[in-house]
Design a protein around this nucleic acid. Structure first.
Length: 761
DNA sequence: AAGTAGAATCTTTTT
DNA sequence: GATTCTACTT
């Protein structure tokens, strides 16, 4: 016991050892959140308050779930494999497999990832001759997902106008299509499980009894359905231990509702609210800046981070003349950090949007500095992998039309649009899947399609007794995928990926406890483990969904779920010591010795699209808060006067977030190019000057030229600071478009408007 | 039926 | 600027 709890600070200790009641832990950035969560579980088990089977720990990402599992294994002398630790979606998948009949799903139901879902929607629209200009597939997808995330089925959605009614109708048709095909999307996993448990009393009560302790990570990221799901799981007596940070809520755009934290406090009458405010990550100036920035938000539960570390270095702020020069500056600074002995992997370069990485990558590449970009394409999202998976999907569930269409003519086997049209007509006529409809198509089309069906069937027959990895191997050959990429001159990488799929299958099978000799199609062992089952009042035997996957599904089904739920690594070349490039979103949860936050410009960060959204600015500010709190020792902030975006040069003003940081924490670095336009370089002693000094207004220039140039920052009595975007006309009647940020774009007569030059740094 | 040229679009992202 | 989708050609 002693060793479990030692080194916890008073708040952490209080949280870990709370009585078995619901609690809300407000865990600030770098306050030891994961440690509290895992120690809480270990403590509950070690003190005998709960058995491992009584714990349900829910996370959002597979990474977080794995980390929790790993830490627990280190803390406890028991096998943590049997514990229910996973993502919302992973846990739902497991439950639905075990209770597939009650959930009205085929045993081999398959999971659509977002790509699959979008193509399913496009197919639906095309099939029903619906104008996708008027009803864009993306919007429909968003509509469907947000309805599901609120727990709403089509008939429950408020259809307030004709347009909306059409969406509702399409939502209904989409559902029918999914049901027919035996596929579920991500939101459906949650909703189906929720409905299963709310309708089935014995089942619900069984799980409610079982899970006496429910622990939730990143609670601020839960959506409405996830909140309802948790509530249902907990029942009247379950203790929910929710850990989160309202200031780090940055996923509202995908349905997360910070309001769930307040709702939780109210609904559960939470007596135990503990704030973890002691930060173990960042130096003082960095933390003070973060606190000061986030204080500008109004809707907060209230929290202020503190540290025992000293002030440390000031935040260095740099104004570049262009995005290229910003990248150049980053390189100079990283070189000097590396020179000081910092390792490259401890330096992160953050940006608001992916488009910004290109310039930086180019500069790093030219300079020969190794770097790693996060957020690229992931393993299971690669086209060749998706193709291979589609063959496997058809072998497990031939009614998956998406999978059918993906590979029916890939590699090409002479089945074109006309044959498929015929097939789709037949399928529609009989209300069956494309695969089943093949039998009804006659003539030449029928022959080539029949060949495809034979291919799938014989592949299934040949591999029925083979373990998964062998099955994958056979499928790669029999499908012709290997051959196809072998004859492709740029196919080498794809071949390599396909070979990696075989290793992935092998690894999966051994890690998930299937045994590497188990046939891929062997049914779940759950039925055999009768002891785990319970019998309900009406005599129905319930086979309990035990934690390990092999008790509820076949290796193939499990692997296919895995491919959808865990798209794999999205980081390139792991291993070598490289700079870390990523968006601010993907940096959440990580920490680095040194962090660069780049592109701090109005329109970029905060992003212009956030202005229209309710609460958009506050979310952007939380995003900035997340970015700042990633840094341990050094923080660099930069913005640029000009930037190439979407093939156009943009002139942005510096981000308002820079103005929201305390002057005494900042050190403005001298700009190099500020006054080159006027033939001389102002070399003020700015190096150590705080912002106020650097913001000094330069004297007005007079002379023959009009004295203004695009990209310059100016000051206007009424509109404040703005950036000249372009100048039209000349001499006495020159006019300029000036971007005043919050006040919008203005067209001003340069002869009339009383503008002052601003040389802000 | 398959490959190629022009047009539209473009925050953030996990499951 | 770069990708992705549609329309057109062969």
């Amino acid at each position: 016991m002693q060793n479990l709890l030692h080194n916890l600070n008073p708040e952490q200790l209080a949280a870990v050892t709370l009585p078995a009641q619901s609690a809300l832990i407000l865990a600030g950035a770098g306050s030891g959140k994961t440690r509290v969560l895992t120690t809480r579980i270990a403590w509950l088990i070690q003190t005998g308050q709960v058995s491992p089977g009584g714990i349900l720990a829910v996370t959002f990402t597979n990474k977080a779930a794995k980390e929790m599992q790993a830490r627990l294994s280190a803390m406890l002398p028991i096998n943590t494999r049997g514990m229910w630790i996973g993502t919302f979606h992973g846990l739902c998948n497991r439950l639905l497999r075990a209770h597939y009949r009650d959930a009205a799903l085929p045993q081999t139901f398959q999971i659509l990832d977002s790509q699959d879902q979008l193509s399913a929607i496009k197919r639906l629209l095309k099939q029903n001759n619906i104008d996708d200009e008027k009803y864009p597939p993306r919007n429909l997808m968003y509509f469907i997902n947000s309805a599901k995330e609120q727990g709403l089925r089509p008939h429950e959605v408020d259809a307030y106008d004709d347009f909306n009614r059409k969406f509702v109708q399409l939502y209904e048709m989409y559902e029918q299509q999914c049901q027919r095909e035996g596929v579920v999307d991500f939101a459906e996993l949650l909703l189906r499980t929720y409905e299963l448990l709310s309708r089935n009393q014995p089942l619900r009560e069984h799980y409610q009894r079982r899970f006496s302790h429910i622990l939730v990570d990143e609670f601020q990221d839960t959506n409405d359905l996830q909140y309802k799901w948790l509530k249902l799981m907990a029942g009247q007596h379950g203790a929910v231990f929710a850990v989160g940070d309202d200031d780090q809520s940055i996923y509202a755009f995908r349905g997360a509702n910070v309001g769930n934290m307040m709702a939780f406090e109210r609904d559960y009458n939470v007596q135990n609210l503990i704030k973890l405010e002691q930060n173990y990550r960042s130096h003082g100036h960095i933390l003070d800046s973060a606190n000061c920035l986030i204080a500008h938000n109004s809707k907060r539960l209230g929290k202020n981070l503190r540290t025992d570390a000293g002030h440390g270095e000031p935040l260095r702020v740099y104004e570049a003349s262009s995005d290229l020069q910003e990248a150049q500056w980053i390189i100079e600074e990283t070189k000097s950090l590396i020179g000081e002995g910092m390792s490259r992997s401890e330096i992160a370069i953050l940006y608001r949007s992916n488009a910004q990485s290109r310039v930086i990558e180019h500069a790093l590449f030219t300079a020969g500095i190794p770097y790693r970009v996060y957020g690229g394409q992931r393993f299971f999202e690669r086209a060749e992998i998706k193709h291979a998976i589609a063959y496997l999907q058809l072998m497990d569930n031939p009614h998956n039309d998406s999978a059918f269409l993906r590979v029916v003519n890939f590699p090409t086997r002479g089945i074109g649009a006309r044959s498929l049209e015929q097939l789709q007509d037949a399928a529609r006529q009989y209300g069956i899947s494309l695969y089943a409809a093949v039998a009804y198509v006659a003539g030449k089309a029928g022959t080539s399609l029949g060949g495809f069906v034979k291919l799938i069937e014989s592949a299934r027959f040949e591999t029925q007794n083979l373990p998964l990895q062998e099955m994958v191997k056979v499928v790669l050959e029999r499908s012709g995928l290997m051959m196809h990429y072998q004859s492709d001159k740029d196919g080498a990488d794809r071949i390599e990926n396909l070979e990696q799929l075989v290793s992935a299958a092998m690894l999966f099978v051994s890690e998930e406890g299937f045994g590497i000799d188990t046939p891929a199609l062997a049914g779940p062992k759950a039925q055999a483990v009768a002891g785990a089952g319970i019998t309900t009042a009406d005599g129905v035997e319930i086979v309990d969904a035990d934690a390990p996957l092999h008790t509820v599904m076949s290796p193939l089904s499990a692997f296919l779920s895995h491919a959808s739920l865990e798209a794999g690594d999205n980081q390139a070349q792991v291993g070598q010591d490289a700079l870390q490039l990523m968006t601010v979103h993907s940096a959440k949860g990580l920490e680095f010795d040194a962090v660069f936050i780049t592109g701090l410009e109005e329109g970029l960060f905060p992003h212009e699209n956030s202005q229209q959204e309710q609460g958009g600015l506050e979310e952007e500010r939380r995003l900035m808060y997340v970015a700042i709190t990633r840094a341990k020792k050094r923080l660099y902030l930069s913005f640029s006067q000009t930037r190439m975006l979407h093939g156009q040069t943009r002139y942005n003003m510096k981000s308002r977030f820079l103005d929201e940081l305390p002057d005494e924490c900042l050190k403005w670095l001298s700009p190099q190019v500020q006054h080159r336009w006027f033939g001389h370089t102002a070399k003020a002693a700015w190096d150590d000057a705080p912002q106020a000094g650097a913001n000094a207004i330069a004297q007005q220039f007079s002379g023959k030229d009009i004295g203004w140039k695009a990209g310059e920052t100016v000051f206007h009595q009424k509109f404040g600071e703005g950036v000249i975007v372009n100048i039209e006309g000349g001499g006495g009647n020159a006019r300029a478009h000036i971007n005043f940020g919050r006040h919008g774009m203005k067209l001003l007569d340069l002869g009339v408007a009383k503008l002052q030059k601003v040389t802000n740094a």
